[in-house]
């Protein structure tokens, strides 16, 4: 398939710069891992946060980080910061002139391999969390976990695609999108009950970040929702993740009609 050919070419070119690649990957791993260590140290002082232990938070943190890392690797072509450059410079033309599916081409236009740093960091923290939590695993929980992860990748991908679509109107990358992508991952790394009501509602009903990792986590921990939503709220993640991604791709197709192809 053409997607894998394009990705392979991109990976080969990135691996031409081995030292740079290794340092970038290590840097991505360390920067977020050290952040988590700082949090863990602070927990030694005050024990818990919103009734959650450090390992329960590590579960949220690790899943969110790893899923965002995978998304950032797969969807970097739609990263609003780089996609808006295509719109601003009119270089989407070259992509539009090739007889390959547009979304496939944009996905393959950038594949940032060094994101494995962030994926490893999230993965390690998640494994540590599971090892220390003593979750009562059931077949349903085991089956649901990979689906939650894939839903999170789709959800953050949808945010990237939506941000990229906005650039057809604004031509600039909108900083506001970062509130929901990078800000959203930070938010999703902590239990929702520590947030004030209006913020929690926005991130449950408008941009459903909470449905993606937090509500499934309640199910994995066998905890009731402090905000009072029924148990099935823990199973909305696939609908929210993949539903939003499908909507985002539809919106992107619509926004493309506004592409102005700057330049001669």
């Amino acid at each position: 398939m053409i997607y894998f050919r394009l990705i392979a070419a991109s990976m080969r070119s990135q691996l031409q710069y081995r030292v740079s690649f290794t340092l970038d990957t290590l840097g991505a791993f360390l920067s977020t891992f050290v952040e988590f260590l700082a949090l863990a140290l602070a927990f030694g002082r005050f024990g818990g946060l919103g009734g959650w232990s450090i390992w329960q938070i590590a579960f949220l943190w690790g899943l969110t980080e790893a899923a965002f890392g995978v998304m950032d690797m797969l969807f970097s072509g739609f990263d609003p910061a780089s996609f808006s450059q295509h719109v601003r410079r009119g270089t989407l033309d070259q992509i539009l002139l090739r007889p390959v599916n547009l979304i496939v081409q944009i996905l393959a236009s950038e594949f940032v391999l060094r994101r494995v740093g962030r994926i490893l960091e999230g993965g390690l923290i998640f494994v540590l969390a599971v090892a220390n939590l003593g979750i009562a695993w059931t077949p349903l929980k085991l089956a649901y976990l990979p689906l939650v992860f894939a839903s999170a990748v789709a959800f953050y991908g949808a945010l990237f695609v939506a941000g990229a679509t906005l650039s057809f109107w604004t031509t600039e990358a909108l900083e506001i999108v970062n509130v929901f992508t990078y800000g959203g991952t930070t938010m999703a790394s902590y239990p929702m009950n520590i947030y004030t009501d209006w913020l929690r509602r926005i991130f449950t009903y408008v941009i459903p970040t909470a449905l993606i990792i937090y509500y499934p986590a309640l199910f994995f921990f066998d905890l009731p929702d402090p905000a009072g939503l029924p148990v099935w709220a823990s199973f909305l993640a696939p609908l929210a993740g993949f539903g939003l991604l499908a909507l985002a791709f539809l919106g992107f197709r619509f926004g493309l009609r506004r592409y102005a192809s700057t330049g001669v």
């Binding site: 601003r88 410079r89 009119g90 033309d93 539009l96 002139l97 090739r98 007889p99 390959v100 599916n101 547009l102 700057t262 330049g263 001669v264």
Partner: peptide, 21 residues
Amino acid sequence: RRAHVAGIGAVFGQRNTLWWD
């Protein structure tokens, strides 16, 4: 678009010579 561009050729000139912003 896909079926269309598969059957045509296009060359555009004058790229990168201006400061787009």
